[in-house]
Nucleic acid binder design. Structure first.
Lengths: 216, 216, 216, 216
DNA sequence: AATGAATGAGGATTCATTCAT
DNA sequence: CATGAATGAATCCTCATTCAT
């Protein structure tokens, strides 16, 4: 499995071919840190530990790096999928809470929002990236969430909201919180406070911000 | 409506003094359409109806165009201000609804989200733009909203939510809806449907998505 | 003589037309200070107190400024001339000493070497300037000096040196002294010390540096 | 002799490592012929037999070419040095004559005065070049000559002249002769006649132009 | 005569991409 | 496979010159 034939060659080489992946790793870091335009192919090469020319052995162009990045991030989704969510039994609010907590926690890791952020930034130059991401990720994930909501309504757990639009209400606050923090460095006094945001958001999401018996 | 074929000689025109503004208008359109890096100064010039060199009569560099753009967008805010919101009397949910409807409707106009979008895209290259926008706009607008919420709580209209974080819950869904539409071209079947989104969102925002007496 | 008609016009104007001269003054200062290439026509205009366009009323091009500068400096020479030198009676060493002292003292004023320096610098770009200077100045002045030397020889004051080449021996040390000072900032400890240089130079020039009865 | 049609493919050639030197050679020729400002980097590249971009592999900027040129010319001096002059035994006039003849002969080669000429021309734009040349060359060479003179005085060969200023008297005439020739194309009828100049100059330098027992 | 806004050719520099080795 | 020297298109910016006012 690991190419037991002793690794000999001009210089030690990784197994099979981790090279393209290493190049993508390097590219992702630099694209995120400096933007696509401001990143030189040579920078990517250096960070990946090979030469400028070698990058072109794996990727036909600088743009292909971007595409490869998105493709790599996108591929597992379609197969993996959060199918469990769709088959979840019982109160969907529990699934929503759990998933949202999980998602939000993960998104705090810059590596994970990296691809969506990259796409948002480069979409004008390379619209096909956004299309790919939509087809491979959003079009798989969003419907699952929508079905969960729909079932929650059907089963009497939720009010009759519009599932498609309600997904925006569920995820939007988290997205905005991250944008304000990352782009504008606008965070609460005690830091990102994603936990507090989640609790505040979930409570509003499920029960609204109105005072139940309040002056209404 | 655009390019009214202003009465000017083939080559020269006395400055209308609107020139810098015209250049910024051109720059904004192109920066939004193609990104900062992919826009050539000459493109801006041509669209503004003058020559490459003339742009440099008004702006010292290409980057100065970007800064000028943000500065122009930002300046009126500090003075203008949505103070009325802060002084609003009575049920704050009415103010929130009205404002949100107003804001969401306006944001559909690409010209209005242009600057924030531009900043989101170029923030890595020019972080000072984001800082400027934060200081001049967000730091003025967000506190007003927070005070409105705080007062709503104090006056018994709202549950004791965290005002700062709740602003994310109020605005986030709209932001995400626009991002999905603009970046990923993900819109409901009947189009952007901002009205429907707003109603769905406001109803969840105020009353939650749980069925009041529902199986809970 | 001074255009007694009251000076009226949009703005006070100098008599007759000092304008071209003022422009040349400005140009000379800037060309010397920054070089021809690094001086912008607008700089010249501003220093001369008029607008860029106005410069072109007097001079057809930037290059014409340079030419005008040299022409102005050169014109008086041909007429003025140091004819007295040629007609000088008696020991020519007295004339040489006196003239050299006078010249050296004057050359310390940057304004006076300005033109030769300018020509030396720009000669590759504008060889005609050097030609003009040679024809109008050097070809008038050098022969006078040569005749003085020739007569000194004929009259038994001087050894039979080559008059043409000896002019280099007379003027060269002063030229080099100025170059070392201006270009390389190499001056004696007590400053330019032109007086000391002159005395040292003249004593060598007339009597040599050998010790007369010295070990020879 | 120039451009030996080096055996290289139409487009590529492995670095001979002489590349930077070849580029400097090209730059020197062009800078001397046309001046720094009037020389395009592409001209230098073409003359060196490579492309515009390749120049930037070796020199960070056009200005770096100039600096590299001076640095290259200057480096050997400090080590090399004319120390023999300082240690010369016996009549210093012999050393002076020999050295001056050698120097003057060499300086007729345009390649050798190239650097000082370049510096004289560009000193206004790049004063650090002159400083570098002064520190690395003049400050090493001039003191040697001064010491030689001082010793000549101490040993009774020379009159008590000022060594520092006398160096001007020794070298100045040659410098002026070259300037008149190169800048103003003023040469004796029989050409540059450096030999004749030297003999005339040395005879005056050592013995003065006065007729010894002459009418004085 | 004077102004200064406008022009546009010119040139330095960068960097994706190629290819001889 | 890998290298990195070399290429040259692309683009920012400068500034001499023009000309409507």
């Amino acid at each position: 499995m690991e190419n037991e034939k002793a690794p000999r060659g001009p210089k030690f080489r990784r197994r099979a071919d981790a090279r393209p992946d290493e190049v993508l790793d390097a590219a992702l870091e630099l694209f995120i840190a400096n933007g696509f335009a401001a990143t030189r192919v040579e920078d990517v090469a250096r960070r990946a530990g090979l030469s400028k020319g070698a990058v072109y052995l794996y990727f036909a162009s600088k743009e292909a790096l971007l595409e490869g990045l998105v493709r790599r991030a996108v591929t597992p989704i379609a197969t993996q999928a959060l199918e469990q969510l769709g088959h979840f039994e019982g109160d969907p609010r529990i699934a929503i809470s759990a998933t949202l907590r999980m998602v939000a926690t993960k998104l705090v890791d810059p590596k994970l929002i990296a691809i969506p952020r990259l796409i948002m930034r480069e979409v004008v130059q390379f619209p096909e990236l956004a299309i790919m991401y939509r087809n491979e990720v959003l079009n798989h994930v969003l419907p699952v969430a929508e079905r969960l909501i729909a079932r929650g309504i059907a089963q009497g757990y939720l009010r009759p909201v519009d599932p498609e639009l309600t997904v925006r209400s569920i995820v939007g606050p988290i997205a905005l919180h991250l944008i304000l923090a990352e782009v504008f460095q606008l965070v609460p006094e005690d830091g990102l406070a994603m936990d507090r945001l989640l609790e505040n958001h979930l409570s509003i999401l499920f029960d609204g911000m109105s005072l139940p018996g309040g002056s209404k």
